[in-house]
Design a protein around this nucleic acid. Structure first.
Lengths: 224, 224
DNA sequence: GTTCCGTCTCAGGTTGATCTCAGTATCGCT
DNA sequence: AGCGATACTGAGATCAACCTGAGACGGAAC
């Protein structure tokens, strides 16, 4: 649903500004203040885009970009560079950044670039999630169980994608509600249960074994 | 065959610099010092890329870009903007520029961007898109369904081309609005729906099966 | 000027996704 | 086994998304 953006900078003025601006645009935002923290957060919750300052304590921005790419991550990266550090910009683009912005920048411009990058990556990044005999193609948004094709509504798709991105791992109800419905509290609704039901119906329509398992009092897991 | 680049700027220092640098890289270079001259030269010899200053006597850069796009020309445009004219940059990207560079810039950087843009656009030219019993010739801009010839207005063409370039893949409304109409927000217009309707009418005029499918809440797909 | 064409807006109708609710089933515990 | 808490299910109401036809508007061609 809403894209997740990781902002990496050690200047609190920048991170505060970006958190506000990006949250206002409807993105969910994570902050890291060092290169190492950035890599960790990126593992915890893989972002859809990274805003990365070049000047960082410890591991610098170029190195972070390199590590991400080396690990096979092709998340779009927007680099922030100091004014006049032209050589850096060029190097940044070569190292795997997808765009850069010169500090100081106008929030409007950052937002425009972020949107453009997300659009581009959304177009190019069609991956196929697989587990057991289930496939989910993020390009066509169609699922398969064995050879059977399964059409999904937007919400069903979001939910299945979330579960399949972390197979064998239990996702709590709080996390699911937040990621799929953007609710940050557990209110008195049972939408999630209803949609789990929809997915189970579709995935087990021909009597196949259950893949979405309930973990009572906690959440759900996708596993055999 | 070396690419032809049109440089539009009224500052002789800039045009001289660019002529030298680009010629050194093996491009053929034309110069225009006003918006009107740019449009004329563009007719005389259609360039493979335009480097366009925003501040121009007479017709300004944004207007030139708009005219080119309105005439159906999708030549890549690299905008030059004065430092700090942030609003212009944003507007530039919205108006149909493909990239921009802030003055003053390093020649190396300009060359890098020019190369990137040319590479991108080269992948996109003169071909015949085919899917199922539909053909779209990007040279003549005419479509066929089976043996029936279908004429398309400029907007219809853009839309169909976008869909046919990625058959079976779901294109989000956001992406479509951006690529075809240059809107970077989802406003309260339903042009896109109207044009989807036009295309469907033309493609299914003789009762053929539907190829443009709606993906509710997401966008559209071109598939059987 | 008139006509034509392409584009876009608007309003009304239709469909399909989403959510709520109430009743039922299941689980884990004593 | 029996109980309370938790999860599932089916049916239907609600609401947003989408489609369509008619027409306004502007620019280009005649």
């Amino acid at each position: 649903m809403k894209a997740h953006i990781l902002v990496v900078d050690d200047d609190p003025r920048i991170t505060d500004l970006l958190r506000r601006v990006l949250a206002y645009e409807g993105y969910s935002v994570a902050i890291a203040v060092s290169g190492n923290e950035a890599l960790n957060r990126s593992l915890e919750r893989p972002p859809d885009l990274v805003v990365l300052d070049i000047m960082l304590p410890g591991l610098n921005g170029l190195e972070v970009a390199q590590r991400l790419r080396a690990a096979g991550d092709n998340v779009p990266i927007l680099m922030l560079t100091a004014r006049d550090a032209v050589a850096d910009r060029v190097k940044g683009l070569e190292t795997g950044a997808d765009d850069y912005l010169v500090k100081p920048f106008a929030p409007d411009e950052l937002v425009a670039r972020v949107k453009a990058l997300l659009r581009r990556s959304q177009e190019e990044r069609h991956e196929v999630l697989r587990y057991a005999d289930v496939e989910l193609d993020t390009g066509t948004r169609v699922a398969h169980r064995g050879t059977r094709e399964i059409e999904l509504s937007p919400t069903e798709y979001e939910l299945l994608q979330l579960l399949m991105k972390r197979p064998r791992q239990v996702l709590t109800r709080e996390i699911i509600l937040d990621r799929v419905w953007g609710m940050d509290f557990e209110g008195s609704s049972n939408v999630m249960e209803v949609y789990i039901g929809y997915l189970r119906n579709k995935l087990e329509a021909e009597g196949e074994p259950r893949l979405i398992h309930t973990v009572r009092g906690v959440g759900y897991v996708f596993k055999e």
